[in-house]
Amino acid sequence: MSELPASLGAGAACPIPVLSVVVPIYNERDNVAPLHEALTHALQQLDRSYEIVLVDDGSRDGTRDVLRRLAAVDPHLRLVLFRRNYGQTAAMAAGFHAARGRTIVSMDGDLQNDPADIGRLVDKLDEGYDVVCGWRRWRQDRAVTRLLPSRVANFLISRVTGARIHDTGCSLKVYRSWVVRSLHLYSDMHRFLAALGVGLGARITELPVRHHPRRAGKSKYGLGRVFRVLADLVGIKMLIQFAAHPIRWFSLLALPLLLLAIGMFVLGFVKVRGTGAWEWFAGYDMAAVAAGAVAMLVAFNVFLLGFLAELQVKVSKFFRHRIAITAREASR
């Protein structure tokens, strides 16, 4: 981006913010005004120009009117209004797209996160990091059934993705803009933003933050959810690492199967005597040989899928696009 002459851009009343706060909102009619107040209060104490991007995800309880009323009197506020409910990730993606600042903060719209923590997170970012995640160290949740699976999940996620984050479920995070613009969010990916950041080469760290208990709502951790998180984890790990080559992952998947297949194949030629001795090539076990052969075929099949994946990566302009964005943003 070419630089405009200094005289045109400077000024204390410059409307281009340095800090953007993105909050997805869904049916939070009573929480919006206190949220806005808390945010304004916290942000005004920082010494930077800021903007607040509130994304309304198709609320039908009157949230929208409250938002418009707030926007009418606060120049720091920007609203993105969806036509209907598209989900939290879409709302966050839209918010990131509309944000203009070089530093972007994401948080929950239901007052679980405390805006007062934003300052500390931003300062930590300036120490030389690209993503700073909030860590809800002193969780206020009651049920052990919620904490334990959550802890296990966090441990797994941090180990597997290398993000070393204790609390990936905390929405309060601060990013440099290039990290956010290089990512395209869909499905439930917003939980894995930190992990994806690792894939981009971002430096990630965390800071303890305050946490206010969720007012209502049932615990969302059940067995099915655990499985889903695990599946997502495997997917994310692969996606992060496939900047190298996706075929490596498919080799990883095919290898054990191949070994099993060879094992079964070989086993087909062994006959075990009652004394425990093994006799080789005395006869053959058709079943084992057949199973081994089929398993070997499938292993090759899986391996070849890897080529398909490589092709897809080549054909899509994904990496060229991403490199272009990263280069442009990093030089802002």
């Binding site: 926007a71 720091h76 920007r78 993105v80 969806f82 879409a90 993606a93 395209h184």
Partner: peptide
């Protein structure tokens, strides 16, 4: 890899704060 093309939310309005 197709995610950039899949952006499918429809924005009804973008409102700028004023005052």
């Amino acid at each position: 890899t197709q995610a950039p093309n899949l952006r499918d939310f429809k924005i009804e309005d973008v409102v700028e704060g004023a005052g």
